[in-house]
Computed example of a mutant assay.
Amino acid sequence: MLALHFGAGNIGRGFIGQLLSASNYEVCFIDVNQSVIDDINSLKQYHIEIVGDVPERILIQNISALNSSDTEAITDNLLHADIITTALGPTALKFIAPVISAGLSKRISQDCPPINIIACENMQGASSILRELVCDHLSSKDLQQLSKYAGFPDAAVDRIVPLQKNSEKLLVQTERFFEWDVDETGIAGNKPPVNGITYVKNLQAYIERKLFAVNATHAAIAYLGYIQNINYINQAINNDNISSIVKCLLKEAGFLLNKKYDFSINEFNAYSQRILQRFSSKYIADDVTRVGRSPIRKLGVNDRLIAPAIQLADLGIISDGYSAAIAAAFCFDYKNDTEAVALQVHIKKNGLASALFHYSRINPQTELGKVILHKYNLLQK
């Protein structure tokens, strides 16, 4: 079986590539980094190190790589592929849509079996977005038949693979925990046999569990840690004040998810404990500035902090944990992040009340808005 995977970075090699390889796929990585491509093609293998009290070293073999510019070779491989996955960043999906559409057009013309294309990006509806981008490049005839030949099931993925510098080529260090949930209702044909995928019927529940709990907690630790000049996530979570806030946030997340999707409170509490254990691991030192990057996106109305805070407010509950995290996010002034710089320029020019509505669509005159403004002012002192 052949898997085409777009993105040969740490997530691609250290998460998706590992699971595909363990499921007996030949994995062809597609990337723009020629140095990584050359290393994959010359070494034909790499290692993953699972960090922890009981470390493990895993050898990944049966791999190859292509440069993203080699569209002819990619199209030929796509014709024979059994699954296509991505892990290259949400903004890069538009760049791979043309070559995927060309390959799908060939598959349609040759009446190939259906294939599933799963975008494993840190965003909601990534596969659906990729489908729209692919459709822009297909003929009207191919569009009419697309659903028969290709599925674009959305997915929720979770694994910490921090920035790292390793002397061993292609080595990736990662945590043991991972989660890869795929919407089985979006599958075309048979479900791809990948050990590690959990096929679910209500993916939105799992997306929001990750977004409102894992991603929100990660961001909260980063922004609160940054304010206190703490460099790493695992150090910040051990700060009593930060720990108290994120535990409050997780309690709020559990309440909301129970109301919306009937997630068991006891099961969610266990899930929350696992989140805190992961982020406090001494083996993964993740920079707060890396986790906090792109604050404007993370303060979006449908994203990890704002969406649950608004939904709780709609239920008559003004969050304490989420509000503190939101206030801290508006304080993120890291000068090497373009969004952080733009955010601070807006606040300096127009004030936080304006920024709160402009970026997060929260009316500063509402109870939620007032609480966030109050917490922000306390952080500024």
Rank of each mutant, 00 (worst) to 15 (best):
Q273K: 14
S69M: 04
D158R: 12
K251E: 14
V288R: 00
Y261H: 02
V288L: 02
A285S: 15
L43C: 05
E49P: 05
Y376Q: 07
S272K: 04
G189K: 00
Q311R: 12
L276F: 08
I63Q: 11
F29C: 02
I108R: 08
R290H: 08
D39P: 00
D337K: 08
Q311D: 14
N231Q: 07
L250P: 02
L163C: 12
C135K: 05
L170T: 03
I37H: 13
P98C: 04
I317L: 13
K141G: 00
I296E: 00
D183C: 10
Y271E: 07
Y226V: 06
N190W: 07
I306G: 09
Q144Y: 06
A324I: 02
K141H: 05
A97V: 07
L343E: 08
L78A: 10
I275C: 08
A3T: 00
V200Q: 06
G9N: 01
K251V: 10
A73T: 09
L66V: 11
E72C: 07
I11V: 13
I50N: 01
A342V: 11
F15T: 03
I96L: 14
E208L: 11
R290F: 02
P113D: 13
V301N: 06
D303S: 11
R209D: 03
I237L: 08
Q110V: 15
I326K: 05
A324S: 13
L170V: 05
V194L: 15
T366F: 01
D287H: 06
L211C: 14
I48G: 12
D38E: 09
Q145A: 09
D286S: 08
E121M: 03
N377D: 15
N238T: 08
H346F: 03
E26I: 06
S272R: 00
N234F: 10
V134P: 11
C120G: 13
G321D: 09
V182Y: 06
I326C: 01
L299R: 05
R290E: 08
Y25Q: 02
G196D: 03
I372V: 15
Q311N: 11
Y223V: 11
V99G: 06
L352T: 10
Y223W: 09
S140C: 12
S280Q: 05
N215R: 03
L79H: 10
V371R: 14
Y334C: 13
D183Y: 13
N77E: 10
I317V: 15
G103W: 01
S101Q: 02
Y261M: 07
